[in-house]
Design a protein around this nucleic acid. Structure first.
Length: 460
RNA sequence: GUGGUUGUAGCUCAGCUGGUUAGAGCGCUGGAUUGUGGUUCCAGAGGUCGCCGGUUCGAACCCGGUCUUCCACCCCA
């Protein structure tokens, strides 16, 4: 009895057409990473359970895929414990491994484990899949690729400036215009919380603030009150919730509000200087915008926070994010090592580019020449020519058997080949090959001896 | 994890208040055309109606469960 095949929800197969486009994006990102001096690393797809758990907050823990122990996974569980049915205390006993949830925490683990081999500041990039046990939606998958660049062991905002430029270079190369790079600062958020006397509720406060776009000022106020923030504290935040004001306007309000907060001032100084210097350096495809409501990665970011929004009119969550974490390696025992990094969401960038029709046609053309097979003797000569063309870097293929010519042409057409070579008995006798341009239907005949000229012409 | 939604041919979808043999377009295969694709014409193949169970004389259609899709939360690339 054959079973019906399927793949787990939130996962996808990729066909040749999709992969050509994905590789194109990856190549642009990779080239940019290397141009900016980052070095590649890879880490295992699964880590020890304890390495990942507790690093992303309660919500994050829930979304981590746990791997069931091999063999008798119940051997360490007592009968009474099993009967209790408490999943939280049971899980660590039956699972010692978990699928990578992001690339940042594994990187921190890598840095700590290899600290004696690394030259600091260490700049690495990493392009690998990560897994989250989330409920899928458009642009949200349970298996997806992140493309991360981080530097550890470097302080000073030159790094932040560099990451903004890196984002911009990639989006410019991809032809993705109108991207917004939003920036905020963890110390600014801490400053606001301090000024309004809600330092102990920092996370609740920022999570609520982050929803301004979605639920509006009234919704944010309601959520803050619901989370137990004092009414007069919420009142003080109100000026920041004025959605009629643009980003810079709200930024100025912020400067007023934070005049008495030392942390707040530190954050503002960073932000101001990143904004000013970026302004002076210029950006090609994107805009850098301060956004007080931006709050993410609260469990480890300590300085600047980035989030990248797709161009206006495209319905898509963030296509990138990042920030500075002063003590990420601290949890693994290596203190006082500052890190900053950003991430590109490959799968979402793909969807945005698809929607905007930004893939160049050349990406979809994966074969330069296709050779028709007319029979044994003809194919022998043809195959020689095919190998010659391939040796020069021309992407060439030949039909494996002497099927009907019409069928072979149809196949060539499906593969999107721009030109077809014909070597039938006429050409074979004369020592020629005929080239048909599929689009125009024009045909030209070359002498076999001219194959190098023909190849050179294609590669121009 | 919560609430909702979707599932019929390879793809996009029809299918009436439950009624006989479940349809269309595109695609696919073959032929018209044994050295010429993308146009045209002709013929053909392809479905346990997501899966399991229930109600009924009778279920693609109604009910329950389950899986899947998409959406809103939560959170996030």
């Amino acid at each position: 009895m054959a079973q019906k095949p399927g793949i787990p929800k939130g996962t996808r197969d990729f066909g040749p057409g999709e992969l050509a486009r994905r590789y194109y994006i990856i190549e642009v990102i990779r080239e940019a990473f290397e141009r900016f001096g980052f070095q590649p690393i890879e880490t295992p797809s699964f880590e020890n359970y304890d390495t990942l758990m507790g690093k992303y907050g309660d919500e994050g823990d829930r979304l981590i895929f746990k791997i069931l122990n091999s063999g008798d996974f119940l051997s360490k569980v007592g009968a009474d414990e099993l009967a209790k049915g408490d999943a939280n205390s049971l899980t660590p006993k039956i699972s010692e491994k978990a699928l990578r949830y992001d690339l940042t925490v594994p990187f921190a683990r890598y840095v700590v484990m290899h600290q004696n081999e690394l030259d600091f500041p260490f700049k690495r990039y990493q392009i690998q899949p990560v897994w989250r046990a989330d409920r899928p939606q458009r642009g949200r998958f349970r298996e997806f690729f992140q493309c991360d660049a981080d530097v550890v062991g470097a302080t000073g905002i030159l790094q932040e400036l560099e990451f903004v430029q890196l984002y911009d270079r990639v989006f410019d190369q991809l032809g993705l215009k109108g991207v917004t790079i939003k920036i905020n600062h963890r110390k600014v958020l801490a400053g606001i919380a301090e000024v309004i006397g809600a330092s102990d509720k920092l996370i609740d406060f920022t999570v609520a603030l982050d929803k301004l776009d979605k639920i509006g000022a009234a919704g944010v106020e309601k959520e803050m009150l619901g989370k137990g923030l004092a009414p007069d504290a919420v009142e003080k935040v109100k000026p920041l919730l004025d959605t009629t004001m643009d980003a810079m306007g709200r930024f100025e309000k912020l400067e007023e509000l934070l005049s008495d907060s030392e942390v707040g001032q530190e954050g503002l100084a960073d932000l101001r200087s990143i904004l000013e210097q970026t302004d002076a350096l210029g950006l090609r495809a994107s805009t850098l915008v301060p956004d007080v409501t931006l709050a993410r990665g609260l469990n480890y970011y300590t300085g600047a926070i980035f989030e990248v929004a797709a161009p206006e009119g495209v319905e898509m969550g963030s296509i990138g994010g990042g920030g500075r974490y002063d003590d990420l390696t601290g949890i693994f025992g290596l203190k006082d090592l500052s890190g900053v990094g950003i991430s590109f969401g490959l799968d979402r960038i793909y969807l945005v580019m698809e929607q905007l029709g930004l893939f160049p046609p050349s990406v979809d053309q994966q074969l330069d020449v296709f050779c028709i097979n007319f029979g044994e003797a003809e194919a022998k000569a043809a195959f020689k020519l095919v190998l010659n063309l391939r040796s020069k870097g021309v992407r060439t293929d030949i039909y494996p058997n002497a099927a009907k010519v019409g069928k072979q042409f149809k196949y060539a057409d499906k593969r999107g080949v721009p030109r077809v070579i014909l070597i039938g008995d006429e050409e074979l006798k004369a020592g020629n090959f005929t080239v048909r341009e599929m689009k125009s239907g024009e045909q030209a005949t070359f002498s076999m001896a001219q194959w190098e000229d023909f190849a050179a012409q294609l590669l121009r």
